[in-house]
Design a protein around this nucleic acid. Sequence first.
DNA 1: CGAGTTTGACCGGCGC
DNA 2: GCGCCGGTCAAACTCG
Length: 222
Amino acid sequence: MDGLHGDDEAHTFPPFPYFSAPSTPPPLASPLASSSDGQHSPLAAALQQLTPPPWPCTPPDLTLQPAMGDVNWSSLFQTGPVALPEQEEEAVQADQSGENDGEAGGSGSGNKEKAKGSAGRSGKKKASKPRFAFQTRSENDILEDGYRWRKYGQKAVKNSSNPRSYYRCTHPTCNVKKQVQRLAKDTAIVVTTYEGVHNHPCEKLMEALGPILKQLQFLSQF
DNA sequence: CGAGTTTGACCGGCGC
DNA sequence: GCGCCGGTCAAACTCG
């Protein structure tokens, strides 16, 4: 976890790819993704752009958060295992492709068991998910990234006077989590760590692009 | 009243 | 084996 702040673990990222998937984007979960001809319709192309990236799908709204002034994008880095072991990678993908019952159903399953801790379910070794961390300079702890988050915990962490907050994506089938914490050294800097990949389109992006998509759908008829 | 937040307790991993 | 620590749960609470 300390890799978050360790410079030796920091991996410089290419320019913040808000709307493009890292390499080969997974198939979109939304039914809208399948066009009538199944090929490269403008609608399908547009929807491809909505493939959820692991990082925020929308940039911090500087107009709404004037204090965020200078976003230190150069500090964008990847934490944790950059290259996942094959088995773990498979586990992660399986976890994200519909077997999200673990976390998503955990809290509401009526399971009397108490918290099973940070190691996850079934006593297996913790499967490391892709994690992406970046720093922003902001008065707000929560940057507007286009997704809806539900806070499920807050902890005081060692060597930091600021608590760490834990959030989970509110989408029913999404298992993405994020941690938000202010730097002890510079409390103006918020470190946000994303864990996992959204398996659904960005809500606010969909909201914003809705009219455009409708128009594309209309135009694609001709 | 439903959705989201707060907060204390609990659990597993890990270092010693 | 023990204790520390990070992560999660879930009941209680708040808010719109």
